[in-house]
Every structure is written in C-alpha cells, then in structure tokens.
Design a protein around this nucleic acid. Sequence first.
DNA 1: CACTATTTGTCCGTATGTATG
DNA 2: TCATACATACGGACAAATAGT
Lengths: 259, 259
Amino acid sequence: MNAIADLFSDAALRALERDTPTPLYFKLYSLLKGAILDGTIENGAQMPTEQQLAETFGVSRITAKRAMDELAAEELVERRRGKGTHVTYEYSPRPVQAPLVGMLQEIESMARHSDVKVLKCRMQVPPAHIREELGTGGNDKVLQLERVRYREGQPFGYYMSWTAGLKKPVGKRDFQKSPRLAIFRKQGLKISRVTQTISATAATAQLADALDTKVGAPLLSLVRHSFRTVRGQEQLTDFLQVYYHPDRFQYQMDLTLDE
Amino acid sequence: MNAIADLFSDAALRALERDTPTPLYFKLYSLLKGAILDGTIENGAQMPTEQQLAETFGVSRITAKRAMDELAAEELVERRRGKGTHVTYEYSPRPVQAPLVGMLQEIESMARHSDVKVLKCRMQVPPAHIREELGTGGNDKVLQLERVRYREGQPFGYYMSWTAGLKKPVGKRDFQKSPRLAIFRKQGLKISRVTQTISATAATAQLADALDTKVGAPLLSLVRHSFRTVRGQEQLTDFLQVYYHPDRFQYQMDLTLDE
DNA sequence: CACTATTTGTCCGTATGTATG
DNA sequence: TCATACATACGGACAAATAGT
C-alpha cells in the first residue's frame, strides 16, 4: 500500500521537521534527489504520487508538487499527466568508496591546536608524478613543505606537501605560527574544492623515525588534493600527503542520519 | 581595518550566495556559530559589528542583526548597546581528531553495490568489554555477525558486529540480500546517532586469511557505534568493527569549503 | 560637563518567497 | 488557479547606551 515508508528511514521521514528554516519543498526535493542519485529509486521506476508524498511527509500537495517540479527541471524525472512521475536518471556505481562531506574549517581548527616542527620549506622542482598532477613545467619550482605535528610533545603526524600558485615567498616561521590554509588564503590562493582519501600503509624507515615508531608499523595515510578554479577550469594547486601514528591520531566523525 | 576577512575564507564569504533557498540570516548565523564553537573567535572577544557583517557579506543590517540575535538567544554571545557583541562561550579543545559530518544513507548505498559472505550469524553472549558498552546483562544474548565483503571477487572488508535490541530473529540469508541497516530499520530499530573512528592496524593471522593478505600488513580499521534513544537516554545498540584491505578499499571524501 | 562616534534596539513601509486550503 | 497568512529581506530613520575627547 505505501512503498514510500520502505524507501525512507524513519530518520529521513523526520528530516522535514522544522528544526532548520530551509523551505520544506527544498528539503523534500533534496531527499528525493539523493534517493535518485544513489540508485535507491531506479531508472524508469515510478516516483510516489504527489498525494502519497504529501501524506507520508505531512506537507500539502502543492509543496510535494513543487519538489517534484524541481526534479523535473533538472531532468532527473519526467512528469506526464495521468501517467505519473518516472525517474530518467541512470545510476552508475562508483568504485568502492564511502563518500563523506566534511568541513575544511574544522581541519584548520585542529591545526590551530597542535604544535608544528617545520623540517623543510623551500622552492623545488617536484617529482614527475606530482608535476603532472599540478600541471607545472619541467623547470617550474613550487613550494615543498615537510612538517611534523606534535601533541603533548609526541609526534602524531608527518606532513609532506607541494603547493603551486603562490605569489609571495613564505618562510619557515610563517608555518610555525599559523595554519597552512590560512597562509594560502592570505596570499589570495582560492581553494574551490578538496578531495581526501584515507588509507593504511606500513612505516618506512624515514617515517618510523619521524613518528617515533617501528619500521613496518601500520600508519594511517591521508592524501588531500586541493583545487582552485582558473578561467573556469579546475586545477590542482596543492598536494598533501599525511601519515598519522594510529595510536596518537584517529579520524573521528559523526554521521547524521537525515538530510 | 577589516579583521573579518581574515577570520573567514573566501569560500566562507561566498557561502551566503543564493544557491540554496535557506534564509540568509540562518546561513550567516551558522557560519558565526561554527567560528565560535571551534574556537576561531575566542571567548570574550568582540564579534564584528552588525554594520561590518552587513558590508562583508553583502546583506542588510537587519539580516546581520537577526543572525547575531539567534546567537544571543543560545547564549553563545552577549549583546550590549554601545558596547558591541561579545563571545560568552568557552572553547575546550578535544583530543586530536578531525571531525566530519557524513551521511548514513551513502554508506547504505555502498553496501548495496558489493557482495557479502556471511561467516557467522548467531545469538551469543558478547565479551565483557562489548557487554559493558551495550549495557546488557551477563547472560543476555545479542546478535553476532561476521561478514566479508567482496568487490569483483576480491575480499576488501572484514565486518564484525554485535547488535542488541532486535525483536524478531534474523537469518544468514537476510544479510546476504539487503544491507544490515535496512534490516534493522524494518525491525523498528531506530538509530539516532552514529559515531565512527578510523585508524590503522596490523593484520592478525585470522584477518590476513579473510582478506587475502599477509600477517602484519597494514589495514584500515573502522569502529562504528550506533546509538538509539530509549526513554530520553542515549544507548549503544550496535557495535561494528571493520577491517579494510588498503589496496582494495579507501575512504574517499569531498570536503566543502563553506557551510 | 557637553560633544561625538560607535553600536545596538526599535519602528516603518515595501517587496518577495513560502505554505496552506 | 486563487486568495490568504506568514516569514524573509531590504533600506531608511531615530532612540538609547557606552566610551572617549
């Protein structure tokens, strides 16, 4: 009788509650869009009717209609009088990943509450694979940084980065005081998107030394790509590789059930 | 002259753009609240004036005022005529962590697009440390699950979980077909909050065997606590420990710069 | 003491967007 | 589609508290 209840969790059903002033039609639209984009409602399948949506989510039919109209405007669904609304978006599974949305500001906040030792800070021609990603020429020098972060005197993270597109020179002292992101921002480097990948790896001799652990010990590895937009084109401007000591640093996240 | 531009990134300044219909005052309020909660604006410090906010974010003074009034209503700031608005919230740094906000629905989506082999599925009295977290008695049996996930025939994740509060019995076959979360949801188990911690660890003999790797090899480790609310009290109802093969599974996330 | 600049509080009128029946 | 109610956002104007000259 009501297949919608199966599609959406109780939490999702509660997502339209009035705890944020975001318009109802937009919350419902976002919810449905998510279900279409992640393949929960398959291509060609019939969407719930306006009446069904209105009842399950406790909104007026006009509001449900508005949400569906927005989907139709993006050509995610097709609406036909008498036939109903059908999905016209083909879901294609991505490689095994657990995508998350985070906030860069919180990373900065973390950076502000730990100590840094700058091992290396110089302009350098990066190795080929980095050069390719940054899109710089064979002789172009970019900023190479190597740092170790400490908490209560103990090293917990080893940071290695290559940054292109800096206008003014920066010194070791700058990075000892303020977060890297804040410095780049002041230089006018506008980051438009960031991608992170977390994995695990074994400690090399160099890493074991820097993080005060044994060779071969498991480390949490993080690679961050930061992009800026140049003439409408997205371009990598910062490459960051971090190795964390798993006993002294862990990635903790809260997952929300709705939205 | 204008210290606000230093506080907020260019992306943050753009966060109030009209791409979502969420009220302007609420977006500004969220932005400022975040800066207070993560210690960017310290306790006792003076907030930007309504006039300054209005200019930097391109809104009217009324809108800026509304945002600040909301903060005052939550007692995060104190407002005094002629004096200005001052922060009254004391930031206390948490242990080294990179907090993130994610969506549980996306996890489910991932689960739906890989193959599962259920190694163990039975009611069992959990070991002491799990029993303590779940808050169950010394003889209470809860659901113990052990699974391996495959992608293209290769094992990438080893899942071990303990779940309390199930009403109806579940069988192996159930977990081979649909995601665990969907099954629990159908049973009426309402999860209210989820916490995840990611770390790295070395493979034991058992794990190496299940994931087709060598003993001592680095693995990505994930611990997930799922809570439900019982009579206003938050209570752990599911404990999940996952080990991922780092070559076959990586945690990828996109970070937004605004919000 | 007055005078001034700053900052928040309050009020108006108006336009637009949202949500309902 | 229409009429209605309410929230949001704007600019402008003035009052009231605070701090410094």
